Simulated scan of single mutants.
Amino acid sequence: MSGTRLSPNAITVTAPDPRALADFYARLLGAEVAVSDPPREHEPDAAGWAQVRTGGLTLNFEYERHWQAPVWPAEPGRPHATQHLDIHVDDLDVAVAHAVEQGARLADFQPQEDVRVLFDPAGHPFCLFL
């Protein structure tokens, strides 16, 4: 392809409470919630939209009325994660403790020694890795 540049800069994550999830990721990543919009007319109080800018990747969070947390590892007939965040860390044990303190939950199954799979408060899996 020539003549144009494509440069991904953000990912949008759906959630049942996007502003609360943005708060979680801001605390986790030591960032701030840059934008937090209230629900639109006729939406529940938990709806809305929010954005966390990390200095690199921007994380957008939008309301999903029919949210179902994915199952990881995947199981037939159940919702599964179609993507997840990978977060590089210097110290895996310290990073896991910090994530849990912010509201994450450690997955029962851990596929690698230098990676930890956790779930955010909405149930999305994410990985901390060395």
Score class of each variant (00 low, 15 high):
residue 81 A to H: 03
residue 51 Q to M: 11
residue 50 A to G: 07
residue 87 I to C: 05
residue 50 A to H: 04
residue 87 I to Y: 00
residue 3 G to D: 08
residue 115 V to A: 13
residue 115 V to F: 15
residue 97 A to Y: 02
residue 2 S to A: 15
residue 4 T to C: 05
residue 69 A to T: 04
residue 57 L to T: 05
residue 23 D to N: 02
residue 40 R to S: 13
residue 120 D to Y: 09
residue 20 A to P: 02
residue 77 G to I: 04
residue 7 S to V: 14
residue 55 G to E: 09
residue 98 H to C: 08
residue 100 V to K: 08
residue 73 P to G: 12
residue 115 V to L: 14
residue 64 E to V: 08
residue 95 A to C: 07
residue 22 A to H: 00
residue 39 P to A: 12
residue 21 L to D: 02
residue 103 G to S: 08
residue 70 P to F: 01
residue 50 A to Q: 00
residue 117 V to M: 14
residue 21 L to I: 03
residue 79 P to F: 00
residue 16 P to D: 07
residue 119 F to D: 07
residue 74 A to N: 08
residue 63 Y to R: 00
residue 67 W to G: 08
residue 17 D to K: 00
residue 19 R to D: 06
residue 130 L to Q: 15
residue 111 P to C: 11
residue 129 F to T: 10
residue 43 E to Y: 05
residue 5 R to K: 14
residue 93 D to C: 04
residue 49 W to V: 02
residue 16 P to A: 10
residue 118 L to I: 13
residue 26 A to Q: 00
residue 117 V to S: 08
residue 17 D to F: 02
residue 22 A to E: 00
residue 125 P to I: 06
residue 95 A to H: 02
residue 87 I to H: 03
residue 26 A to R: 01
residue 74 A to C: 11
residue 94 V to K: 12
residue 110 Q to V: 09
residue 126 F to T: 01
residue 110 Q to I: 08
residue 37 D to A: 15
residue 81 A to Q: 01
residue 120 D to H: 09
residue 74 A to M: 05
residue 44 P to N: 07
residue 120 D to F: 04
residue 15 A to T: 01
residue 55 G to N: 10
residue 75 E to S: 12
residue 21 L to G: 02
residue 94 V to G: 12
residue 2 S to P: 04
residue 5 R to I: 15
residue 118 L to H: 09
residue 82 T to W: 03
residue 46 A to Y: 04
residue 26 A to I: 03
residue 67 W to S: 03
residue 47 A to P: 01
residue 22 A to K: 00
residue 117 V to L: 15
residue 14 T to V: 12
residue 34 A to S: 15
residue 34 A to I: 04
residue 106 L to V: 12
residue 110 Q to T: 11
residue 73 P to Q: 08
residue 115 V to W: 12
residue 14 T to W: 05
residue 60 N to H: 15
residue 8 P to N: 07
residue 100 V to G: 09
residue 130 L to E: 15
residue 13 V to N: 00
residue 12 T to M: 15
residue 84 H to I: 07
residue 102 Q to A: 14
residue 2 S to V: 14
residue 44 P to H: 02
residue 127 C to A: 10
residue 37 D to K: 13
residue 128 L to G: 07
residue 75 E to R: 13
residue 62 E to Q: 14
residue 63 Y to D: 04
residue 128 L to A: 10
residue 63 Y to L: 06
residue 23 D to W: 00
residue 45 D to Y: 08
residue 113 E to S: 15
residue 104 A to R: 05
residue 115 V to H: 13
residue 111 P to Q: 09
residue 109 F to L: 15
residue 97 A to L: 13
residue 62 E to Y: 12
residue 107 A to C: 14
residue 116 R to P: 05
residue 62 E to M: 10
residue 60 N to G: 14
residue 99 A to K: 01
residue 56 G to V: 05
residue 21 L to R: 03
residue 105 R to A: 15
residue 95 A to V: 01
residue 24 F to H: 01
residue 101 E to A: 15
residue 34 A to R: 09
residue 110 Q to S: 14
residue 15 A to D: 05
residue 55 G to K: 04
residue 35 V to W: 04
residue 58 T to R: 07
residue 82 T to F: 06
residue 94 V to I: 14
